[in-house]
């Protein structure tokens, strides 16, 4: 889930599942420049070890 330059965004009880692992698969959620991001009850990890499930910047 990629959120970029948005505000008041809620992800509630969402789930990210990787059916296969691809090089360009990354975080479960990436948020860039998002004001008012609420994440509740997220299920799922990043596609690759060492990456955060949620990456905000």
């Amino acid at each position: 889930m990629h959120v970029d330059t948005a505000s008041d965004v809620t992800l509630r009880n969402c789930e990210v599942v990787w059916g296969s692992v691809q090089d360009n698969f990354s975080h479960a959620v990436e948020a860039i420049d998002v004001d008012g991001l609420v994440i509740e009850g997220l299920r799922g990890e990043a596609a690759h070890p060492g990456l955060d499930a949620v990456h905000q910047h």
Binding site: M1, T10, C14, V16, W18, A47
Partner: peptide, 8 residues
């Protein structure tokens, strides 16, 4: 997004 499941 509420109760959204995405299988990639």
């Amino acid at each position: 997004l509420e109760n959204v499941r995405i299988e990639l």
